[in-house]
């Protein structure tokens, strides 16, 4: 199945990005695309002009995917502001996660493996406007991430890999139900972007008219 994997850290060196890279390599049954929140601007409800290109790109990828996996770091016992910002973009004028099966994984340098951030992330993803269908199976919490990977970027502990395989298999089964029920409309993001562009154009035209009026006066 087609999966979008979002790395939730804006740092150049990210253990969560590393985790997703390993998953893409390991789970060859699935078509996994990795995107990062790095490069997504800080959300502002009063942004002007068209939506930022990286946001549209990410939303389009999410809409096309059968499912989304979010790799969540933990900053101050919660999600990173960069990931929160991304989710705000994906719940404002665009809603590509609506009805989308989402799985949470996470890595952190401490033993807890982002457990508290994942709990916050569940709260966030369950809020209206996002309407994601968060998979509630086993939790994948990769602690001590600094030493968890071998030189080839693979998770070193065989038991951890086996557990991750089990988690992904359960999630795939869960996602299959939604695929069987028929794919949702995949034009919502496109329509929303077009709608905003139309609005921006008319604002520009109004601006031009104002200028014309000013000139004729």
């Amino acid at each position: 199945m087609k999966i979008l994997a979002i790395a939730g850290s804006s740092a150049k060196k990210s253990n969560n990005f590393k985790l997703l890279t390993f998953m893409k390599k390991h789970f060859t049954d699935h078509d996994i695309t990795i995107e990062s929140v790095r490069g997504i601007p800080l959300f502002n409800e009063n942004f002007s002009g068209n939506m930022p290109a990286p946001v549209i790109e990410l939303a389009t990828e999410a809409e096309k995917a059968d499912a989304v996996i979010i790799a969540c770091p933990e900053y101050n016992h919660s999600v990173s502001s960069a990931l929160k910002s991304t989710i705000e973009w994906l719940s404002y004028e665009l809603h590509p996660l609506r009805g989308k099966p989402v799985m949470l994984v996470g890595a952190s340098t401490y033993p807890q493996g982002s457990s508290r951030a994942q709990t916050h992330l569940r709260d966030i993803l369950n809020s209206p406007g996002i309407d994601a269908i968060v998979f509630q199976g086993d939790e994948f919490l990769l602690g001590n991430a600094a030493t968890a990977f071998d030189d080839d970027g693979a998770i070193a502990a065989a038991g951890t890999v086996t557990f991750l395989e089990k988690c992904v298999a359960q999630f795939a089964e869960f996602v299959q139900h939604f695929i069987d029920e028929g794919c949702s409309d995949c034009t919502a993001v496109e329509n929303a972007v077009a709608e905003r562009q139309e609005r921006e154009k008319s604002v520009e035209k109004d601006g031009e008219k104002d200028e014309e009026r000013a000139v004729t006066k």
Partner: peptide, 18 residues
């Protein structure tokens, strides 16, 4: 925002604590 604090506030707290 989405049952949590806005990313902009979270970002400011990260500046104050990182």
């Amino acid at each position: 925002y989405d049952h949590s604090i806005p990313a902009a506030l979270k970002s400011a707290i990260e500046w104050l604590s990182y």
